[in-house]
Amino acid sequence: MNFLKRTMVALAATMTIGAAHAQDAANFPDHPLRLVVPFGAGGGSDTLARTLAGSASPYLGQPISIDMQPGASGVIGTTEFVRSAKPDGYDLIITGTGATTTIPHSQKLTYDPLNDFEFVIGVVGLTEVLAVRKDFPAKDAKEFIEYIKANPGKVSLGHSGTGGEDWALIRLLANATESDLTDVPFDGGGPAATAAAGGHIDGVISSLVAVTPFMESGDLRVLAVIATTPSDALPDVPTMPSLGYKDVVLDSRLGIAAPKGTPKEIVQKLHDAFKKTMEDPSFLSFAKRLNMNLQYVGLEDYKKALQGDFDRIGTVYEKTK
């Protein structure tokens, strides 16, 4: 009797746990999610996160709150995320930034950029551009390169943080053109573009998203697209490879990741919801208005793509040394 009773209790307990577990995935999500943005307000990754989070809630059935943790090119937010986020699908982070692909090459970090995460979805290939203040002496990219060669150390370019992608591109440009550029760190691409628009620095290498408002107001001029393929939004602007600098290129992708160990069904559910969001007409129209370069890549393929970026930038760092 006693044995039977104990068995029954144990059995009931097991069933409850099992049922609860299955229900976790089935009911997911039953409360709001949190998306960490490891960058300052107004930059490319911030704008993407806000737009995506807003459009995704109908597909997830829950709102997503944005948690801004800016600083040190995304390292602060990412470090904190890996340290504290729970692998239950409710904690997500914007990834595919310098904190994933660039900084690990130059700094000792407390996280593994590719293996501490479950990669959910790649959303945007950020278009990196070179833009200068409106009264800068050079008219186009060719003149700009001649100018920086003739004026070593005189030209200052802003970027979103030392060790990040924008910074790496400035160093690459300096190397490729054999010139001396002064790079100035800011707390994200937005503040850097603002300083350039005010004429406090000569220009920026930043995401197109951060530059767009000032391009429209006429305070900044975009001289070159720093990607292999031209941007749909800027058909007349040359790419760096087309100018003869094939090494000054970064095809970075922004997306969403969950902590390592998040259940597969939940990652799949998140992926499906965000993929539907990417096909949502209202999201598409935002993306277009923001000049976002949508590039869907899912799950394992996303991880492979990031690995590719990571390796390419790794060789880039070798060259920079």
Binding site: A41, G42, D46, T47, R50, T51, G54, S55, I66, M68, G190, T194, P213, E216, S217, S282, S285, F286, R289, L290
Partner: peptide
């Protein structure tokens, strides 16, 4: 200008974008 100056205004900025408004000179 279309430039948020603080995290709080950045949220407002995002809300405007989501609603199809383009903060900026126009």
């Amino acid at each position: 200008l279309g430039v948020p100056s603080s995290p709080a205004t950045a949220v407002l900025f995002g809300a405007m974008l989501m609603q199809g408004l383009r903060p900026g000179p126009l």
